Computed example of a mutant assay.
Amino acid sequence: MPLTRPRALVTGASAGIGQVYAEHLARTGHDLVLVARRADRLQALADELGAAHSIEVEILPADLATRDGVEAVASRLGEAPEIDMLINNAGYAARGRVAELDFDALDAMLRVNVLALSRLSNAAMKRMVAAGRGTIINISSGTAFMQMPGNAGYGASKNYVLAFTRHMQLEAAGTGVRVQLVIPGVIATDFHQVAGNDLANFPPERVMRAEDLVVASLRGLELEEEICIPSLPEITDWQSYVAAEARVAANVSRDRIAPRYHNGA
């Protein structure tokens, strides 16, 4: 019986982090399904990777800000040839102070960052749990830990990814499905230009190459790390964060208010 190669579906694959995931997975013998809005860029990347690595590369042009686009990708996750790995990478930042928000821009961003990721995670989990195997990687952001003026919408969307993925990890336990949460910092891609910023505004020591991020993520899978924060020196810092969270959770629902609210009585 001929051996079949694993197949990965990558969203936001036409540039930046998504493109680098596609390149790394192609080099390690994965067939690919590449998803993004720009069909011409997808086709150029598919031609390049297919020729260089003798793999099969499908393209699936889709706008994940639209229901039709999301459902087209969700449908592909349930079809043959089977998808073994989903990289939920598509996302962008629409920023603005809350009092000045452009709600059309916010709506479109949340559809991609929150709703599309949720629907594709749902479709992949359903298929992978039934098969007893598979890998899902969801990309959050270091801004999930930060509060900055003008970043409420984007930061909240990445907080959602963080929380949603951690719940997925609990549900995936014992199913054979791996779920990894990746929390990047500032990455050297065109993401920042699209968001109206400039990489030159960040100190060089804070900016990571997309290639290094992807290497950390894929190596983290080998190490069975559910949480990949590529530049975090000690994973114990994350563990301390989770422990502090657990202490708050233990006291968030009690039958009486805390003593400090008793007006000194």
Rank of each mutant, 00 (worst) to 15 (best):
6 P>A: 08
7 R>D: 01
10 V>F: 09
12 G>P: 12
16 G>T: 00
18 G>Y: 11
23 E>G: 05
25 L>W: 01
34 L>C: 10
39 A>V: 14
41 R>M: 12
43 Q>N: 10
53 H>N: 12
59 I>W: 01
59 I>T: 08
60 L>S: 15
61 P>Y: 10
62 A>E: 08
62 A>F: 13
62 A>N: 13
63 D>S: 12
68 D>W: 06
72 A>H: 09
75 S>A: 14
81 P>S: 04
88 N>D: 14
90 A>N: 09
93 A>C: 14
93 A>N: 13
94 A>R: 10
94 A>W: 02
95 R>C: 11
100 E>K: 05
103 F>K: 00
103 F>Q: 02
103 F>E: 12
105 A>G: 07
109 M>L: 08
110 L>D: 05
115 L>W: 08
115 L>G: 00
115 L>R: 12
121 S>G: 14
122 N>D: 05
125 M>P: 02
129 V>Q: 12
130 A>E: 15
134 G>Q: 08
135 T>E: 12
135 T>F: 06
135 T>W: 13
135 T>M: 13
136 I>T: 03
138 N>V: 01
139 I>C: 03
141 S>C: 01
147 Q>M: 06
153 G>W: 00
155 G>M: 02
155 G>C: 00
155 G>T: 01
156 A>Y: 00
160 Y>F: 15
167 H>Q: 11
168 M>F: 02
190 D>S: 14
191 F>K: 02
192 H>F: 15
194 V>K: 14
194 V>A: 14
194 V>E: 12
196 G>E: 05
196 G>K: 03
197 N>M: 10
197 N>Y: 00
201 N>K: 13
204 P>L: 03
207 V>H: 03
209 R>F: 06
212 D>M: 06
217 S>C: 09
218 L>A: 07
225 E>C: 00
230 P>Y: 09
234 E>R: 02
239 Q>V: 10
239 Q>L: 15
240 S>G: 06
244 A>N: 09
245 E>T: 09
245 E>A: 12
251 N>K: 11
254 R>Q: 14
255 D>W: 14
257 I>V: 08
259 P>E: 10
262 H>C: 09
